[in-house]
Design a protein around this nucleic acid. Structure first.
Length: 253
DNA sequence: ATGTCACAGTCCCTGTGA
């Protein structure tokens, strides 16, 4: 089973890239973030033509998350079941694995109300994972907008006082891990940076100025069945790329 | 700090968000 997560920064703008990537990589499950579409605009038929079922939680101009699967798609849930109007979380069961696609709030700045929203959002995700069915494998993937450690940031000194690297954000990830989850890409690649996002500005990609903020958390039993995890940097190159690259996990199940 | 994108609403530029 192959599972990928990709923040596409508008599925409308990225459709040609997404379609060709699916044809090339053939993942069983693809988690999308920032579709920036309403459910009415989501290309269900185009995905179906490629052999995939979809569940989308769309909003319109901003946010929007989806799960694309060719191994079944059941028990779909949207959001946390509270009054949060932002479409940032969708869950489904695919091939017997509980899967979540997450678009964690950016935070904007440490003194911005959106940063408080980000920490509250991560705490709600932890609470959801703390009461999950431990009999079932789980994959929690998405754009976490947090670099778990300094190895995940091209220059920690450039991020002093900024979001994505602050202690409370990293502690929020530790709390998620404490529910029995592991950062798959890092566990299989202990030393490589594995950046997944590069700013469109400043020629960041060619300069190697990246962050690893797109993560695949898996339960410990699933980690034992994992064979590989990598970032597809090729998808960040070429014509009209997203500013994020897909992150892939491969499992012998 | 910012050399770019993508979006929606004024339409072919501007403000917002990342």
């Amino acid at each position: 089973m192959n599972v990928a997560t990709w923040n596409v920064n508008s599925l409308t703008a990225r459709w040609p890239r997404v379609e060709s990537w699916l044809l090339e990589k053939n993942p069983d499950v693809l988690l999308l973030q920032e579709t920036k579409q309403t459910d009415a605009k989501f290309p269900f038929a185009a995905f179906a033509a490629l052999g995939y079922e979809c569940a989308h939680y769309g909003q319109g101009q901003w946010n929007g998350v989806a799960i694309i699967s060719r191994v079944g798609l059941e028990e779909v849930t949207r959001g946390f079941g509270d009054d949060d109007p932002e479409a940032r979380l969708i869950g489904a069961t695919c091939g017997g694995v509980r899967v979540l696609s997450c678009y964690v709030p950016n935070g904007r700045a440490l003194d911005n109300p959106h940063y408080v929203y980000k920490l509250e959002w991560l705490a709600k995700l932890r609470d959801l994972l703390a009461v999950r069915d431990l009999e079932k494998h789980v994959i929690v993937g998405g754009d976490f907008n947090v670099a778990p450690t300094d190895l995940d940031c091209y220059d920690p000194s450039a991020f002093e006082g900024a979001t994505h690297v602050s202690a409370p954000e990293r502690e929020a990830l530790r709390a998620i891990e404490a529910t029995g989850l592991i950062d798959l890409t890092r566990s299989l690649n202990p030393d490589a940076p594995c950046y997944s996002w590069w700013d469109y500005r400043n020629g960041s990609f060619r300069r190697g100025w990246g962050l690893r903020i797109d993560l695949l958390y898996v339960d410990l039993a699933l980690r034992a069945k994992a064979t590989a995890s990598y970032v597809d940097r090729e998808a960040r190159k070429g014509e009209r790329p997203s500013d994020h690259a897909p992150v892939v996990g491969e499992f012998s199940i």
